[in-house]
Amino acid sequence: MQKSLHLDPNKCTGCLQCEMACAWENHRSFTIAKSRIKVFTFHKEGRFVPYTCTQCDEAWCMTACPVDAIRLDPVTGAKIVLEPTCVGCKVCTIACPFGTINYVASSGKVQKCDLCGGEPACAKACPTGAITYVDADWTGLGKMRQWAGKTDTNPATV
């Protein structure tokens, strides 16, 4: 079974534990500027929205890369940047419609979410269940259940 990151903004409080976990996993530092997942605050709406790569099947970053530095991890479905191959041309950052692959000036390479090899650190760190790692075919299950719970199955009474 393939799994996907599932992001639920309604549960996010903006604590940024996910960003620290990501930065730690990949840079051994808590500096959130290096995180591959970002939480956006929409202050006037009172909303916090975590956002990262959705691992497109038809991944434009992968297609656009001129040196074949982005490869598919067949187990997790993640599109992974091969750092030694990446030449830092940034074409992938232009190709990605969602902005979730970004250049890292200190390394001269790009970085994106690689699902941590199947154990995403952000999901583990999230204290509210806003980020979970679930069956890729059933990311809608929670929402379905929520609506199912609202279905009125009581017989009408007079």
């Binding site: 604590c15 940024l16 916090f48």
Partner: peptide, 10 residues
């Protein structure tokens, strides 16, 4: 509207 966290607060 909602509750919100400070940095790193669970």
């Amino acid at each position: 509207v909602t509750n919100g966290a400070c940095f790193g607060c669970t």
